[in-house]
Amino acid sequence: MLIVKNLNSGYGKLQILFDLNIEVPDKGLTVVVGPNGAGKTTLLCSIMGIANIFSGEIMFNNIPLAGELTYNLAKKGISYVPQMGNVFAELTVLDNLHMAGYLMPRDEAKDKAAQMTDIFPVLKKFILRKAGTLSGGERRMLAIAMGLMKNPKLMLLDELSTDLAPIIAEKVMMEVSRLRDELGITILMVEQMAKRALEIGDTAYLLVSGEVRYKGKADSLLHEPELCSMYLGIKPPADKKNSYALPTPEEGSE
């Protein structure tokens, strides 16, 4: 669905990504993990036309995206949920949803907003409240709902769990896997909560200093002790030094 080929990009004259190659398969959850400053957010910004692309290709369903203006990408079915500032704080929750469905006819946007409040019932309670008054978790739900408003073919999610309490972050992660499983949306997710993201993801990329260090199955990356401890801060369990596997149902019930 999305292919990034030999991408070199950054901001102004500062290059952040170096010859990056990434493929996001259809209807899958692709996870990009890596330490701070690895260029994870820059990757999403490059796809969205926010960062400067120096060379390389970004193809979405065989259509080149490089050089495209940000607002045109929404028309192509790409939805982006930024890490920070992912809601309009000064607008009501309802206006936020309507703005996310800006390209739709008014009636369709209204129906879609009602549908979103069914999927995320927490938003129904605060529908006329300013988004800036919502809690961190509620804001994140609103941000995902806004991303979904556009009926996206591809969603780009940038560090959804940042600043959230672990229990809320877990809820957000469950929502993300539900989007893939129930709605069949293709997702490219950048995440700091690496362990949980790799558990729910299909394909993973480990980004370090703007370059890909690992590419493969998401849960297989959890079996790379060196990469995990060096770049992701994931330590092997005390009793199983070389295993990062999730507990089996039997183990879990013990």
Binding site: Y71, A74, Y80, V87, L91, D95, A100, Y102
Partner: peptide, 21 residues
């Protein structure tokens, strides 16, 4: 709709652009 879109762009141009404004 356009007026609200203006306020949205004033507050957060990146998100507004990503919304198709």
């Amino acid at each position: 709709k356009f007026g609200v879109a203006m306020r949205a762009t004033i507050e957060n141009p990146v998100l507004a652009g990503a919304s198709g404004i």
